[in-house]
């Protein structure tokens, strides 16, 4: 445990002595800014313990009205926790596989683009960057047609592959940064030892790319986890729904019990936040490792 901690110590990078005035001022500013960013989390949780009247009128910002025993705990009781966990699981599967596919594809492409010298690698690299420019809304119908012809409609594939494709360009962009950081001498030495391109990639590059994994993962995660349009269009079967489209089941046409929606979102968000906090050291560490090159 202790050893693990030593592997990342932010203070070692820092200048030890800045002026005390600076420290106080920046700490105060940071506390104010952090409070602004922490408030939504607090608000989300209190929101889940109110009824519509409190949410829209009588207790909009703070704690629910009355003593804790009068808070609308019913919202959690009314919640089909089992369904939410199922949606969570589906989201996790889809997101994980999409990230995995896009990461593998991106690292392989990045290897060919950054470590093998050939004529059109610059052009191909630029071409991949086109991917971050495409608005998802415009691709709904074409992707539907493609997915239908491949028999993917109402299966997880209809989400996994498009999500992977839409995170591909960003993954390549990040991957390239890490890739240039690995000294070329390593490849050369391996070739002299008789390694093939594939051998170099799998034995040398992939292990060294591990710090890139969490950086790519977190950016792709943000793209896939909250996606609603593809999810609600391509998936009809309840058992396959992802979180965003599953939670939409709680929004009625004319009347919505917002407290219930809040409870569902809270149940769905808390695990994400816990995972993030648990992983944040690792994430931040890998961010730093890959940063310079972007």
């Amino acid at each position: 445990m202790a050893k693990k901690k030593d592997s990342f110590n932010p203070d070692q990078y820092a200048i030890q002595k800045s002026s005390p005035v600076f420290r106080v001022v920046s700490t105060v500013l940071l506390i104010i800014w952090s409070a602004l960013n922490l408030y939504p989390l607090f608000w989300m949780i209190t929101f889940s313990l109110k009824d519509n009247m409190q949410i829209t009128k009588t207790a909009m910002y703070g704690l629910p009205k009355g003593a804790p025993s009068e808070w609308i705990w019913k919202n959690y009781k009314d919640l089909q926790i089992k369904d939410i966990l199922m949606y969570f699981k589906n989201s996790a599967i889809v997101t994980f596989l999409a990230i995995l596919i896009s990461m593998i594809a991106a690292m392989m492409a990045s290897y060919a683009l950054m470590r093998i010298k050939w004529k059109f690698r610059g052009a191909i690299n630029k071409m991949f960057m086109l991917g971050i420019t495409i608005p998802v809304q415009a691709s709904l119908v074409p992707v539907f047609i493609i997915a239908k012809n491949l028999g993917w409609i109402d299966t997880r594939m209809a989400l996994i592959i498009p999500y992977a494709a839409f995170s591909l360009s960003m993954s390549i962009l990040i991957s390239n940064g890490f890739m240039t950081n690995i000294p070329m001498d390593l490849d050369e030495a391996a070739y002299i030892d008789g390694c093939s391109r594939y051998g170099v990639f799998f034995r040398i590059i992939v292990p060294l790319m591990l710090p890139a994994v969490s950086t790519i993962a977190i950016y792709s995660f943000l793209q896939c986890w909250n996606e609603l349009m593809f999810a609600s269009t391509f998936i009809s079967t309840k058992e396959l729904r992802t979180l965003p489209s599953g939670l939409r089941q709680l929004t009625g046409t004319y009347t919505t019990n917002f407290g219930l929606v809040g409870a569902a979102i809270t149940v769905a968000t808390i695990p994400t936040i816990i995972i993030y906090i648990l992983l944040s050291r690792k994430i931040q560490e890998s961010f730093i490792a890959g940063a310079v090159k972007g």
């Binding site: 089941q249 009625g252 046409t253």
Partner: peptide
């Protein structure tokens, strides 16, 4: 469109 909490 009769989702789980819809009045219908």
């Amino acid at each position: 469109i009769a989702v789980e909490t819809d009045s219908n």
